[in-house]
Write a protein that binds this DNA or RNA. Structure first.
Length: 197
DNA sequence: TCCCCGATTAACT
DNA sequence: GTTAATCGGGGAG
């Protein structure tokens, strides 16, 4: 397993990258220097041919970074108040991405709690908007390189073995297919409840 | 321009 | 189980 994730690793199809992102480590450096770490436990894949994907109708100002280089960050605002984190996948221009839906807090609980406005550990990073809020990420970080030395980075960590990954349909998607493109670490205390089949 | 509604969350009854 | 909060993208007029 590579010590650090390479550009080529991200340049594959989202449904391939998404399960392999489980167990990886998000490293966030806040403007004041505080370092936060969270271990990814839940992801969802989005591809351009998929009506549920923001890239379905082609590039716009909002989703531009989805069509940028792989391994970069795509941040969007939902419902006018919540931000969500994505990792761009596939070759540049494709429009693939993986939504990071939940994480396990590793380092920086206090700062995460302050960002979230709650100290409840099981609600710090469990949910796409909660994760973004805990890490202090908004649209100002949209498009940054996760492989560089920037304010948000992705470390290789330790991937979750296939046998410990549960696959379900995606959450909150109303349009189109109910493709089984959601991946969670089985029985993780830090992920959200899975939809009934 | 106007209007609808979303890859969500928390606080209700 | 239901609903408000709150913004902006994008299709309709």
């Amino acid at each position: 397993m590579p010590r650090s994730l390479t550009r080529a690793w991200f340049a594959r199809a989202a449904p391939l990258v998404a399960p392999e992102l489980l167990g990886r480590i998000l490293v966030r450096r806040l403007p004041d220097g505080t370092v936060l770490r969270a271990r990814i436990v839940e992801t969802e894949a989005y591809e351009p041919a998929d009506p549920a994907s923001h890239s379905f109708k082609g590039p716009t100002a909002r989703n531009a970074s989805m069509f940028g280089p792989p391994g970069h960050l795509y941040v969007y605002l939902v419902y006018g108040l919540h931000h969500c984190l994505n990792v761009v996948t596939g070759p540049p221009g494709r429009g693939g991405a993986v939504l990071l839906r939940a994480g396990e807090p590793l380092v920086g609980h206090d700062a995460m709690a302050a960002n979230r406005g709650t100290a409840r550990e099981d609600r710090l990073c469990s949910g796409p908007a909660r994760l973004a809020q805990a890490l202090g990420v908004d649209r100002s970080l949209d498009g940054i390189d996760l492989l560089g030395s920037g304010p948000l980075r992705l470390h290789a960590g330790r991937p979750v073995p296939r046998a410990r990954i549960t696959v379900t349909r995606r959450i909150g998607v109303s349009t189109g297919v109910d493709t089984p493109w959601r991946f969670v670490e089985t029985d993780s205390r830090w992920s959200l409840p899975s939809p009934r089949v």
